[in-house]
Write a protein that binds this DNA or RNA. Sequence first.
DNA 1: GATAGTTTTTAACATTAGTTAAGAATCAGT
DNA 2: ACTGATTCTTAACTAATGTTAAAAACTATC
Lengths: 240, 240
Amino acid sequence: MILMFDYCINRLSAYTSLSIEEKGVLRGVVDKKIKHCRGDNIMLAGSEPKSIHVIYNGWASRYKVLPNGREHIVAYLIPGDMCDVHVTLLKRMDHSIRAETPLTVGVIDGGHVDYIMHCYPNLAKALFWSMLVDESIAREWLVNLAGRSAEVRIANLFCELFLRSKVAGLTSSDTFVMPLNQVKISEAMGLTSVHTNRVIQRLKRDKLIVVNKQNIQIPDFSRLQAFADFNGDYLHMGFS
Amino acid sequence: MILMFDYCINRLSAYTSLSIEEKGVLRGVVDKKIKHCRGDNIMLAGSEPKSIHVIYNGWASRYKVLPNGREHIVAYLIPGDMCDVHVTLLKRMDHSIRAETPLTVGVIDGGHVDYIMHCYPNLAKALFWSMLVDESIAREWLVNLAGRSAEVRIANLFCELFLRSKVAGLTSSDTFVMPLNQVKISEAMGLTSVHTNRVIQRLKRDKLIVVNKQNIQIPDFSRLQAFADFNGDYLHMGFS
DNA sequence: GATAGTTTTTAACATTAGTTAAGAATCAGT
DNA sequence: ACTGATTCTTAACTAATGTTAAAAACTATC
C-alpha cells in the first residue's frame, strides 16, 4: 500500500527528478484514501472541490454530458494521474470525473496543496507540468478526432495508453491493462460502439494488438506506431 | 497603440481584477513588437522558445501537421490571447502557431516572465489561469468534434468566438469579426471545406448568423445558443 | 453448472460527410 | 475598370460511419 503513490511519482519523474524529501512530502500530504465503485462520480461538473485527488489504482474518465443524454469522454485517467490540480485556479469543474473501474484515490486537501505550492517550488512546477501535459494530450486528441480515420484513431489511442502506462510503471514488457470496454472507447473516440467493434476486430486480425481479457499486448510497437501515425512528443515524456 | 495590450488585460480581468500597478507591469514587460504576415509561423513545433507572445491584433492558430500533409487547427488565438505561456514548463512546443491574418505580437522575454512569476503572484496566477482556460476550451472542442453534427458544431464555434471576442472587447453590439475563411474553419472543425460551406449556408439561410464580409452578426444569440447546444461555462468567464 | 447480466459480434440498411472538379463571385493590386 | 488570385458555391458521385436490433459469447454468482 505504501507503493500506491509510486505511479504518480514515476509520472512526475518524467519531468523532473524528485528528491527523497519531495517524494516524502507527496506521500505525506495525502489526508485519506477513498474507494469508489465503478460508475461512481468522483467529481461533478459545476462543483467547487477544495482538494485534489490522485488515482492510486483503477481507471477514471473526464466526461461531459450533452443535452441528448450522450456522454463524451474527454480524457482517461490512469493510476498516478491527478484529477483536478487545476481547481487551484479554476474554481468550478467544467466537466465531471467518474470511476470507470473500482478505484482508489488519495485525497490531498486544499491546505496541503497550498503548502506544496509555497514551500516546494519544484513540486509545484511538477504539478503544473502534469496539467500542461493533460492539455497537450487534449490537443492531440483533437487532431485524432478531426483528422484520422476510425482505425488509425483507435490505434493511436492504444499507442498513447501503452506509453502512459509504461511511464507510470504499469506495463510488463509489451502488455498493458486496458480495463475499459468498447463502449467506453467509443465514447472517447467519437464513434458508435458498433463501429468501434468493427475497427478493433481489424486491429486484432492484423495482429497490431493481441487482446486477452483486459490485457492488451502490442507484439510490435513500431508497427502499430507506423500504422497509427503516432508520434509521442506530445506526451512530453522523452519519447521520440 | 498604447491600447494594444488592453485586449489581454480585458481577458485576464475576467479572472481577477488587476491593480493599476499590475497592468503597468504587464505593459512594461513587453520588450518589442513584431509584425507577421498572414501565413507566417510565429512558432514551430519542436522549438524551444524563450519568450512568450501576446497577440495585439490579428488572429492566429495553433496547428499540427499530419504525415498526409493535412493541417489541423487545434485552437484559434484572437487579440489578447497569449501564445505560449506553457513553455515556461514544457520546454518544447508540441504544435506550431501561425498568423492567419496580418498580425502584431508583443514579445515578453524569459527574464521578464520569471520576474512576473516571482514578484507578481496575482499576475502569475492570471497567466496560469489563461492556460487552463485554453485547456478547458480544448476539452469542449473534443466534445464538439466527437459528439455534434457538423451544423451544431459550427454553430457552437460561432457562439464561442463571439463570447471570447466580447470579453476581449472586440465586439460591437451583436457583431464580431471573423477574419478566417471557410477552409480555416474546416481545418478546425474536422470537416471538408465543401461541407463547411454547405453548413454555413444553412446557418445563414436560417438567419442564425448574418455574414457581411468578415463581420458576423448574431441577430439572436439565445436562438443560436439553443440551436448550438452551447453552454459557456467552459470559458470560465462568468457566462451561464 | 445454471442463470442473469454484461460485453462483443453480426447484419441490413440509412445517413452524414468526403471527393473531385468546375464555375461564379469577390477581392487586391495596377 | 481590368486582371489574376482567392474564396465561395454547386453538382454528381463515393465512402465512411451511424442506426437498430438481435444473437452469440463471456463473466460472475449462487
